[in-house]
C-alpha cells in the first residue's frame, strides 16, 4: 500500500533555527513518498545528507525549493531550515535508513552541499557552488560556479559545464571533466582522468594507476602538471601555444605528432620549448611506467560515453576500448626507456 504525502509549505528562510518544514514518513508496510515546496531567499544554500539511495538535483527559475522523496516505511525524510540553509536529512525509524531517493529542484543560483554513504549523486544545471561527497556511489554534476568540490571513494566522477575552482577526488573510479574553466585539481588512485575542452591556467592532475588525457587551453603563464605512476599521459597541444615543458618517464616512450627539439635534462627527463617564448606556460608531464604523447587538436578523437562503467578501477577494464577512440597519426617518436643501470 502506498502512502502519499503532499505537503506544501511556503517558508522564507529567515525563520528561527531548525524550523521543521516537512517530515515525510512511510507508514505501515508500504512505501513513503513525500513532496514539499517552499520559498527561499537569495543566498540560501541547500545541504543534503542521504545515507543510501540517490540525490538528484535539478534547477529551475523559481525562488523556491521542491523536495520529492521516495522511500520505504522504515525511513523518513526531514526538511528544515537552519539560518539560510535548507537541510534535508534522511533517517531510519529504527537504525540506519534504508534506500531513499531524493529528487530536489532548486533555484539555479543556489549553492549546495550533498553527501551520502551508499549514494549516487547527480546535479544538473547548478549555478552556484557545489560540494558533493559519496563513499560508494557515482557523482555527476553539470554546471556549478565558484568552488566546486566532488569526492567519491568508490565511484566515478563526471563534471561538465563548470566555471571556478574545481577540485575532484576519487579513490577507485574514473574522473571526467568536460567544458570547464578555472583552476583544476584532480586526483584519483585507481582510475583514468580525462579533461576535455578545458579553459584553465592552472591544472594539477594525479593518478597512480590510470591514464591521463588533457585536451584544453595552454595559457600564457599557466601551469599544467599531469602525472601518473602506471599509465599513459596524452596532451593535446594547440597550435601557437607558447610553453616550456618537462617530460619525465622512468620506463616509457615519448612521442609527438609534430616535430620539436628536445634537450636532455637528466637520466629520466628532458625538456622542450614551443612557441615564441615570453610569458610561456609550464607543462610538466610524468609517468613512471607508461608513454607520454603529444597531439594536435583533432588527432585524439574523444567519444564520451555514458558512464556505465564508472566506479570501476583502471585494472578492471584494461581491455575496454570503448571510452576513447584514439586516432593515432603521429610520426615523431622519442625513445627514453630506462631499465636502470
Amino acid at each position: 500500500m502506498q502512502m502519499l504525502f503532499a505537503a506544501l509549505a511556503a517558508v522564507t528562510l529567515a525563520l528561527p533555527q531548525r524550523d521543521n518544514i516537512h517530515q515525510g514518513r512511510g507508514q505501515g508496510q508500504g512505501q513513503g513518498v513525500g513532496d514539499t515546496t517552499f520559498a527561499v531567499q537569495n543566498g540560501a544554500r541547500l545541504d543534503v545528507n542521504n545515507f543510501g539511495g540517490e540525490i538528484v538535483v535539478k534547477t529551475w527559475n523559481q525562488n523556491s525549493v521542491q523536495v520529492h522523496s521516495s522511500h520505504s516505511s522504515r525511513s523518513q525524510v526531514n526538511v528544515s531550515a537552519s539560518g539560510s540553509t535548507v537541510l534535508v536529512r534522511t533517517e531510519g525509524r529504527r537504525g540506519p535508513p534504508s534506500i531513499v531517493d531524493l529528487d530536489i529542484t532548486v533555484p539555479a543560483w543556489m549553492g549546495m552541499t550533498l553527501s551520502g554513504t551508499y549514494t549516487d549523486i547527480s546535479v544538473d544545471g547548478a549555478g552556484g557552488s557545489v560540494t558533493a561527497e559519496s563513499v560508494q556511489g557515482d557523482i555527476a554534476v553539470t554546471g556549478g560556479t565558484g568552488n566546486v568540490a566532488l569526492k567519491s571513494v568508490e565511484g566515478g566522477v563526471t563534471l561538465a559545464k563548470t566555471r571556478g575552482r574545481i577540485e575532484v577526488n576519487s579513490v577507485q573510479g574514473d574522473i571526467s571533466i568536460e567544458d570547464a574553466s578555472g583552476d583544476i585539481t584532480v586526483e584519483t588512485v585507481n582510475g583514468d582522468i580525462t579533461l576535455a575542452r578545458i579553459d584553465a591556467a592552472n591544472v594539477e592532475v594525479n593518478t597512480v594507476d590510470g591514464d591521463v588525457l588533457y585536451d584544453g587551453s595552454i595559457k600564457p603563464g599557466g601551469s599544467y602538471r599531469l602525472a601518473t605512476h602506471d599509465g599513459d599521459v596524452t596532451v593535446v597541444i594547440p597550435p601557437g601555444a607558447s610553453l616550456s615543458a618537462s617530460v619525465s618517464t622512468f620506463d616509457g616512450d615519448f612521442d609527438a605528432s609534430f616535430a620539436m627539439d628536445t634537450v636532455r635534462a637528466g637520466k629520466h627527463r628532458f625538456t622542450f620549448t614551443l612557441g615564441r617564448g615570453g610569458n610561456t606556460a609550464r607543462l610538466e608531464l610524468e609517468t613512471f611506467s607508461g608513454n607520454i604523447k603529444l597531439r594536435r587538436p583533432g588527432e585524439v578523437g574523444l567519444e564520451s560515453r555514458k558512464h556505465k562503467n564508472s566506479g570501476r578501477g583502471h585494472n578492471e577494464r584494461d581491455n575496454d576500448n570503448e571510452q576513447y577512440n584514439y586516432n593515432y597519426d603521429y610520426h615523431y617518436k622519442y625513445h627514453y626507456r630506462y631499465a636502470g643501470n
Binding site: V208, H268, G340
Partner: peptide
C-alpha cells in the same frame, strides 16, 4: 586494494631509486 596499488607504486619507485639515487624525478 587502493593502498596496495599505492604501495606497489612506492615499491617500484624505491627500487628505481636504489639504481639511480640521485634522480630528481
Amino acid at each position: 586494494q587502493n593502498l596496495a596499488v599505492i604501495d606497489r607504486a612506492i615499491g617500484q619507485a624505491q627500487r628505481a631509486l636504489k639504481r639511480d639515487p640521485g634522480s630528481n624525478y
